[in-house]
Every structure is written in structure tokens, then in C-alpha cells.
């Protein structure tokens, strides 16, 4: 192998054929209201954690829906479970439960 001074770059494309939707199925089984989300972002706008980090429940739900598992691994544990998002959601998603089961999905990823 030759060191050329440059290398191949990873493809950042979401590949829906390779991605696995096991997390979505697991969370849905435990908290079906994840499917109510319409990505409006009301949850994220008032999120206390979002002021200091990249946490956004809107984005995390989308990542789960696309099977982008690695993207939520660290973020999901930034949640302080303050519950502001629960009050905010116009569709009544049980956001606390969704985040809890997201964490469980990350912890138990190999068992899903």
C-alpha cells in the first residue's frame, strides 16, 4: 500500500437500503406515539439542553426513522428529562417516553 498524501473519504449519504430500522420498531413497540411526530420542532425550540448542545428531539426521531443509529448514540443521553418538550408537543407525543426508549435502544442495541 502506498501513502499518497490523500485518502478516500467516507460517503455521508444516508443509505436507506443498508440502514436498519430496528430502533424505530423497538421504540414504536414501547412508545407508539413516536409515530405521531410531524417534525415541527416545537420540542427542540424550547429544549433546555439544546441551548448548550446539539440535542434536538425532532432530529433524533428523524435519525431513528432513517436508521442513522450512530448519530444519536451520545446525544440522547444529554436529555435531562425536564419535560418541557412534553408540554410543547402539539400532537401529544409522549416525548419523555420516546427519549427513554431511545436510550434503552442505544444501550441494548445488540439485543434489538
Amino acid at each position: 500500500m502506498i501513502e499518497f498524501g490523500y485518502s478516500l473519504q467516507a460517503n455521508r449519504q444516508i443509505d436507506m437500503d443498508l440502514n436498519n430500522l430496528r430502533m424505530l420498531k423497538y421504540i414504536r413497540n414501547n412508545e407508539p406515539s413516536i409515530d405521531w411526530c410531524m417534525s415541527c420542532g416545537t420540542c427542540a425550540s424550547g429544549c433546555t439542553a439544546a441551548a448548550n448542545c446539539d440535542l434536538s428531539l425532532r432530529r433524533m426521531i428523524l435519525m431513528v426513522r432513517r436508521g442513522e443509529e450512530a448519530e444519536i448514540h451520545d446525544l440522547v443521553f444529554r436529555c435531562r428529562f425536564c419535560g418541557k418538550c412534553l408540554n410543547a408537543c402539539p400532537r401529544g407525543v409522549n416525548t419523555r417516553n420516546v427519549i427513554y426508549w431511545m436510550q434503552q435502544a442505544v444501550i441494548n442495541i445488540n439485543a434489538l
Binding site: G5, Y6, S7, N11
Partner: peptide, 14 residues
């Protein structure tokens, strides 16, 4: 610029 060539190369690989 040589260091940028990985960007070209990755494109061709697709």
C-alpha cells in the same frame, strides 16, 4: 492541490 485529491478520488470511486 495534492491534499485535496481524496475528494476527487472518492467521487470517482462512487
Amino acid at each position: 492541490v495534492k491534499v485535496n485529491r481524496g475528494y476527487s478520488l472518492s467521487c470517482a470511486k462512487v
